[in-house]
Amino acid sequence: MTLFLQTLVDAISLGSLYALIALSIGLLFGILRLINFAHGDFITLGAYALLLPSASTVAVVFIGGWPLVPLIFSVCLIVVAVAVLCDRIVFKHLRLASPPTLLIASFALSYVIQNLILIVYGARSVSVDLWSSLTRAVDIGGMRVPLLQLVLVAATIVLLIGLVLFLQKTRFGIQMRAASEDFAMARYLGVKADFVIGLAFAISGILAAAVSLLVVAQAGVVSPTMGASLLIFGFISTVIGGMGSLSGSVVGGLVVGIASSFMQAYLPPDVRTFRDAFVFGFVIIFLLIRPSGIVKVKALEERI
């Protein structure tokens, strides 16, 4: 029973992380039909933003040593700036391009960012001590839960609620939803295309920064490919949830997180190392049964 509850907490916190990544991918896909594979590198970049370039195995912490609020603010600012810049430099020139072209452009961008990180920071993964006080465990009904996992879940919930309020209540949020449903019509009503797309990139930047901080705090390691592997799970969460649906992205993230954590805990020890293969197997079976994902999106069927 304790194992089950412990695993459940793990599952929800991992699922929340995937949900944040899936949301960013889903947001840009809804508006731009772009599957942004560079998003993983936004996450990596957010982690490296904490450090100064150095060849040593122990990280030279810079922003990472600042107090909480300026630290979060600066990392968000850096990642948002990079995300918006990527739109201006790359995607803005591809507004009329087909989704496959956009996808390939995002792959290229991903390699460019990854290699820039390699040049500046080196290929070795380095350990970073971020908010290590959060790794201490708290006692909940006889269960030892790392404080960090609670923070992770709480942070995700706060971000999700914030995003939902933004999309439902503010004029820019309503414009974004309109743009993701029918971009051409939104523009005939005066919705500024470049502004809305820039805003979507900025929001995906904030979500990426949040994921970087949570991952670094949890794993204590920074590496040039850390974002890329996270992105794969975020992406399959988006697909399982239903491409183009924001609520679907969140549900998809949780489903993948739960599947992954429970397989880690309950698969026979011999095959546990192949957990990811089982997770992907589960994804394939799921998509065979329900190809459009959990939440079906109408606009998508019309457009493709």
């Binding site: 004029r171 309503i174 939803r177 309109a178 009503l189 005066g190």
Partner: peptide
């Protein structure tokens, strides 16, 4: 309501 509001935002 949201459809109508969209016309007013600009």
């Amino acid at each position: 309501e949201e459809n109508l509001l969209l016309g007013s935002f600009m």
